[in-house]
Design a protein around this nucleic acid. Sequence first.
DNA 1: AAGCCGGGGAC
DNA 2: GTCCCAGGCTT
Length: 348
Amino acid sequence: MNFTDELVQWYLANKRDLPWRNTTDAYTIWLSEIILQQTRVEQGLPYFNRFVEKYPTVSDFAAAHEDEVLKLWQGLGYYSRGRNMLKTAQLVQQMYNGVFPESYDDLIKLKGIGEYTAAAISSFSSNEARAVVDGNVYRVLARYFGIYEAINSSTGKKTFQSLATNLLNKQNAALHNQAMMEFGAMLCKPKNPGCGICPVNVGCAAFLNNATTALPVKLKTVKVRERFFNYFLVTDGNTVLMNKRGDKDIWANMYDLPMVETPEMLPAHELAKLPEVTAMFGNELNITEDTSVIKHILTHQRLFVRMVKTTNTPLILKENWAFIPVDSLHELALPKVIFILIKNIFNL
DNA sequence: AAGCCGGGGAC
DNA sequence: GTCCCAGGCTT
């Protein structure tokens, strides 16, 4: 048996039972694929189930409001996925009359669908002969064929996509793709791969050369920026002043609190006198509580976040500010760290 | 081509 | 701490 046939045999004997594998409905598969971008199966699974229940068809999804989608997406990260899904659902409703496209060429044009996702949806829904290349496939191919080209260079991407396409079983694209990814996720793992029980170890360049830890090769480490967020809790117990974020920075269109960003974390008494703060509240801030600083890690940023409670109220409400009834707080999509800051105060 | 976009789990 | 996850969009 050749390499890919071995992996298919391994897959049939070892595959997990995952809900999106029991359908060929392009809409349902699309839901799963977007949710699973840069996301582990175990983390995405409960979100998939909630989305399928709330939006059984793409028409149901298209009728949703963005706040509602982001709320359902809360905690999953990379929120542009949720925002793009709504746009795509609305476009499919209008342009395709609610019938989700199945062809790669149609799918690749949609917001939030790139090469990987178009290949995944087209092959899983209609068995179109398109090879998926995700993180798992990069790793499996780099190791088995001993490819030291960086998987995140533009030439490397072409090399791996070309190799994956050549290897594709064009009669059984769906099964082939599932097998490649599941093998990478379950056995040919980033750390401690199961080489001892691997069905293709005798042909694996990395195994034979003791190079599994060196492959795949990936370029550069991301630069991490440090930021200091000072949030203000303005509440009378019945309502709380919330801010809807813009669409440029992190957590686009989600909700947090009024805040100032500082170049470093200041003691409360210095924060209270900051010109930016006194301008906002009319005079020196009266701080009644100050949380300990929470360190919150994102891919490109290390956030240091604190929240101060104040008896002051702002002079004027900025455009994106509103006093929200505490009873309605649970409807707002909150970034993880905001949820942590206020969950105990308002019983969220 | 490089930078940006979350949160969590394994080690 | 570091790495990476069924990646894609913007500049």
